[in-house]
Design a protein around this nucleic acid. Sequence first.
DNA 1: GGGTTAAAGGTGG
DNA 2: TTCCACCACCTTTAACCC
Length: 660
Amino acid sequence: MDEGESSSTNNPSRPWESYNTVFTNAKAGMEGVDKEKVQRVVYEMSKGSKYFQNEERKEALMKQKIEHMRDRCAKLSSSDLSNYQKVVDRRILELEATRDLSRVWLHVDMDAFYAAVETLSNPSLKGKPMAVGGLSMISTANYEARKFGVRAAMPGFIARKLCPDLIFVPVDFPKYTHYSDLTRNVFKNYDPNFIAGSLDEAYLDITEVCRERGLSGGEIAEELRSSVHSETGGLTCSAGVAANRLLAKVCSDINKPNGQFVLQNDRSTVMTFISSLPIRKIGGIGKVTEHILKDALEIKTCGDMVLKGSLLYALFTQSSADFFLSVGLGLGKTDTPEVRSRKSISSERTFAATGDERLLYSKLAEIAEMLSHDMKKEGLTARTLTLKLKTASFEIRSRAVSLQRYTCSSEDILKHATKLLKAELPVSIRLIGLRMSQFNEEARHSDPSQGTITKFIVQKGSSRKNLDDNDSFDLDASKNCLGNDEMLSLSYASHETSYDQLKDVVEYEEQSVTPEQECKKEEERPQVLEGDALLRKHKESKSETSAQNTEAVSVFPQMEPLLWVNGYKCNLCGIELPPSFVEERQEHSDFHLAQRLQNEESGPSSSTTPPSKRRILGKEKANSKPKKQKPNQKDGSKHIPIHTFFTKSNQNSNDETQKK
DNA sequence: GGGTTAAAGGTGG
DNA sequence: TTCCACCACCTTTAACCC
């Protein structure tokens, strides 16, 4: 048994054979590669590194998982299995009933897209091995480079070892976006509602086009590919045509590059095709799942998934088993889904591993700034912040917190990210990432293409209703920045974030501000301008010249002065506007004036007084103390659950058999 | 008990 | 000589809340 498994042939003289790298797998474009050489080079260059050690750790974990699954498998009685088989039989009938062979789907995939675009704009690269990316990581390699075993997601230094003449070209996203747009212009002629998977691939429902023009799916694919070639000035793509998207995607890979494959829409053709297809060809089945299915259940082809359905339903969750079974039947999505909007936005950076807290905090500040910038660009506010860390030993940690308000301000992000990071120290880190999720859906549809945030505020400010709506983007943006007293110290620090300031913020908060207090403070604040320490300070020193770090650019009569802190940040709402944005600054001043006038006109109880919604939000999280006290992970004995992904909890499996 | 949140992990481009 | 990215999606589990 298991002769074919590299993981189980442990030949001490050829240790690389057991190193499970993803760089020699069954993906396209690697035919004729000396796989053993690639494997050996990758192994030699990786051996002993921290990365390698982590890979070994993960490998061991996976083996444990497989062992665990084998155990459970062995414990299944024949009556368990026959019960599960009944479940499978029923599910097969249900799934068969959903089979739709009436649609024609086409999957287009550009060939070595980034590399091809670079060659187009620099023809001297033609015929030479080339990779887009850098020494740390490459994004794409052209087909000349692939002959050496160089491929996407391979570290550049290994790629150069495999192919010493490899030419590195830096990534140029705007260029790829331009060419991607050209291809999409072609796609929409065939399906205006096509689904863009990424810059270089798309799914098209060509059912109607085929019918209207009396052409086959294959003929349409030929025409489309030729059109892409001419419209882009020479880029080639591959296509797959089949009854659903899952199959079409598999098919587009078959005759890559610059080819296509058509799978006829009849059940027996589909079943023949799928039954012998290696499971790894299916999108969603990666290295780990492949390994588990092969080594624990001896499932190698999609056909095996149907044959061993009872095991799948016994050992995996319902949704995983359903997925596997539908794959085995050659089923896939045939509808055109609603336009999906993003669920999260993130930014992360890798750097030389360090445990230096100052350095880490300053990296964190940079990333918070980048993330905030991206969010503002897209007009997004969100309320769940996740800190991601990769330790020097490549262990990934994530820590999340849900905030009381939607925000996109770098100060808010940094404040909470700092708290999360602080709890992890001391630790040596090589990557920090920040992600924001749980978007404010009401605000996200606002037009992010506006010139400035100020303009946006002014526009919306013309409507009282909008002004009073606490969930609208404008007020959130300003209130977020007005938030808490302690945040002001951050505002000052934001240009040049100082470790000591950050530290103070965190310590101050922990000592004196509970979430409940934060809520209360918000409710007590009758209007935007009050309850703010900095403002009070300004009131006291109204007649004096501005403080050292501030610059008065506009003073309204009978009103607190509008100051630009550090020369660029509004002290009333925290919005950032460089001095050169003269017009925008004037508009911004007008906005605050208008708001003040409105407040005076309608009395202190109206306008921006927090209504019920905000209170609910506050209440929701009023007791959001650290929910669980995670076991201390700094002692090196970090617990990692073994039977997590995909596996059902052990003790339930028998009960469930009974139930069914 | 059902819904929500946090944490971890897999996948793909 | 150097020594493995960045981003977004999804699923699962456990803990917690009402």
